[in-house]
């Protein structure tokens, strides 16, 4: 099992997160569509951590899972947190200038999605996907 941590402090770090996740997904033998979905989800969550959480970090790890590889990403920020998670996961809900599809959209692109948030303390989002077309 390998793990890499990428700091999310600027817009350029969003690109670094994408490249790191792409790299690990390629090595985990993700199909092109699987890679694209995971990298896109990572991009959404990295931007969320930057814009709404004031920055943070993501830990990227991979482990064997059946015939494939499970890639897990844990995004941590220490921003204001999210008071109403259900609302934040609703398509079209936004407190920023985007389309409000970040969290809900990212959830649809991955196999597993978990979010924990404490107002005033920050937000942790964990996602994972497994290569080899595992049925959700």
């Amino acid at each position: 099992m390998e793990a890499r941590v990428v700091t999310i402090a600027t817009e350029l770090d969003i690109v670094r997160v994408r490249q790191t996740v792409r790299d690990i997904a390629v090595r985990g033998r993700f199909s092109l569509v699987e890679q694209t979905k995971l990298v896109t989800a990572a991009s959404e969550l990295a931007r969320n951590a930057l814009v709404h959480g004031g920055g943070g970090e993501v830990s990227v790890s991979a482990e064997p899972a059946g015939p494939g590889v499970r890639v897990r990403l844990v995004f941590v920020d220490h921003g204001p947190g999210i008071a109403d998670l259900d609302q934040a996961l609703t398509d079209g809900f936004t407190t920023g200038s985007g389309l409000g599809l970040g969290l809900g959209g990212a959830r649809r692109l991955v196999d597993e999605f978990h979010i924990e948030s404490t107002p005033g303390r920050g937000t942790t989002v964990t996602i994972s996907s497994t290569s080899g077309g595992v049925v959700r």
Partner: peptide, 10 residues
């Protein structure tokens, strides 16, 4: 792959 992802993203 981008088209598939965009549709799924909503």
């Amino acid at each position: 792959a981008v088209a598939i992802t965009l549709v799924e993203l909503g």
